[in-house]
């Protein structure tokens, strides 16, 4: 049974050795094994090709494969580290690791910066923050006058853009989140601390013993 299971795993595109992934992330080997169960479920939800498409990612997040969401798109793009248009298992584990309670704070700060630096210019620009605010308002069906949006943007950039050049660089972002730590709450998933309890089924598929021998 172990051999059969191993063969199945190696046939999954992007499958990486759990021992190697554990050494590169905040997860233990058994936690990587548990994440593989979650990964298999998500990656086979629309097309069973062993890769997570954007549609499958949206389905897992919203239980609705057609729901378009700017922020989910940004998260997907960052998880798709190899820029292949899909998330493979290695990408999935390494990206989720950033959200582990024990992951280094610097990794969380960098990830959040990239999330908001939508065009990858190296700066979070006012038009990007405005676009995200408008997307949030649409998502939550909140209405806010244009003037109110501009007031929020003025306040945000007055607080974060210390050199007042109209854009937030990485150093400014680091200072800003140090003063506003609640902004990084979204970068930690408490679930990840005890994932083997969340996915007990991994126990029946674990390769940990055979790797150890």
């Amino acid at each position: 049974m172990g051999c059969f299971e191993s063969k199945v795993r190696r046939e999954v595109p992007g499958y990486e050795d759990p021992v190697v992934l554990a050494s590169e992330t905040a997860f233990s080997v058994s936690e990587v094994e548990a994440l593989f169960e979650l990964y298999k479920s998500i990656s086979s939800s629309v097309v069973d090709d062993g890769l997570i498409s954007k549609e499958e990612f949206q389905l897992a997040l919203f239980k609705n494969r057609k729901k378009e969401n700017l922020f989910a798109n940004r998260i997907f793009d960052l998880f798709d580290a190899k820029r292949k248009g899909v998330i493979d298992f290695g990408d999935f584990v390494k990206s989720l690791s950033v959200f582990h309670p024990n992951a280094p704070l610097d990794e969380k700060i960098d990830f959040a910066f990239k999330l908001y630096d939508m065009d990858g210019s190296g700066f979070i620009e006012r038009h990007e923050v405005k676009q995200m605010l408008i997307a949030l308002l649409c998502e939550s069906e909140m209405k806010l006058a244009d003037e109110a949006i501009e007031v929020i943007l003025d306040k945000t950039f007055s607080d974060a853009d210390v050199n007042q050049d109209g854009k937030i660089d990485l150093d400014e972002w680091k200072n800003f989140v140090a003063k506003n730590p609640s902004l990084l709450k979204i970068m930690t998933l408490p679930y990840l601390r005890d994932i083997t309890t969340t996915f007990p089924s991994f126990v029946f598929h674990s390769e940990v013993d055979e790797i150890a021998t």
């Binding site: 997040l61 999330l115 908001y116 929020i152 974060a160």
Partner: peptide, 26 residues
């Protein structure tokens, strides 16, 4: 608290699209 007293990132971080916890719900 009115939204205009908050900074944009506080508001943005409330987006459902940023809540990866949903990935773990069956």
């Amino acid at each position: 608290i009115t939204p205009v007293t908050m900074n944009a990132f506080e508001l943005i971080s409330t987006s459902q699209g940023l809540n990866l916890g949903n990935l773990f719900e069956k």
